[in-house]
Amino acid sequence: MKAAVSRTVDALEQVILGKPQELRLALACLLAQGHLLIEDVPGVGKTTLALALARVLGLEFQRIQFTADLLPADVLGVSVFESGSNAFRFHPGPIFAQVILADEINRASPKTQSALLEAMEERQVSIEGKTRPLPAPFFVIATQNPLSQLGVFSLPESQLDRFLMCLSMGYPPPAAERALLAQTDRRSLLAELPCVLDAAQVQSLQAGVREVTARPALLDYILALVQATREHAGLRHGVSPRAGLALKRAAQAWAFLMGRPGVLPEDVQAVFPAVMDHRLLPAHAALHAPPSARDLLAAVAIP
């Protein structure tokens, strides 16, 4: 299993250059059965990441470009009356795939957004009274463009909580960017990516993540971190218990990726900014940016 993980990482690193940390975090997010939100400008490789993940893990991939006029049915699917069979037939929407890239999610209307988010949360779709389960490893990578504040529907805070992690890809380091420029054809590179795993194996890896030990001392640390967010005056209110659970799961996945049998505080620290940054809301009165997740990590002692 360890070998499978390292082969996966190796394969992904061939395509996503200079971003080992983000890559691993994305993988950890997937293994922890969470969903990923990427906040970044277009063109830094979000799509490539999603595609590469889907490909290497042998998963089915779908991309949904969100626009203002996108309707929930466009995402979830629709029942159409077929005169031939004289019955309604369900045409599944693009969400019925294993890896979804929901591009520019903040361009869609709140209605469509919440349709997606509910599906993400419950891993099933209810249409016309019928519940249809989504495919088994189900992983949504949503992207948000932070640049244009005008005419967008930013995800409400309560919805942000549904993403296990929020990453910012950022520009690649110069060396990686140079290598990127030197490459001949990225499309073919992606197509050539080996398929390391399949859906069943991914599921067994996800099961493996749940087996990673989190000792009481570690849970205390997670608790201390969560409470620190609640005590900090620069924050509107602390993070939810769901955030604590998310932190634990993400840390387990990280430890799993590192091949450790138990979660270390280091693992928690590695995933903490990704898990927490989008959940930390500045206090209304605060005039400046809230404390970053890194500030909290530096302040909270490891019990």
Binding site: L264, E266, A301, I302
Partner: peptide, 9 residues
């Protein structure tokens, strides 16, 4: 040791 410093660091 800094307060939030993990053993590895």
């Amino acid at each position: 040791a800094r307060p939030g410093e993990a053993p590895t660091a």
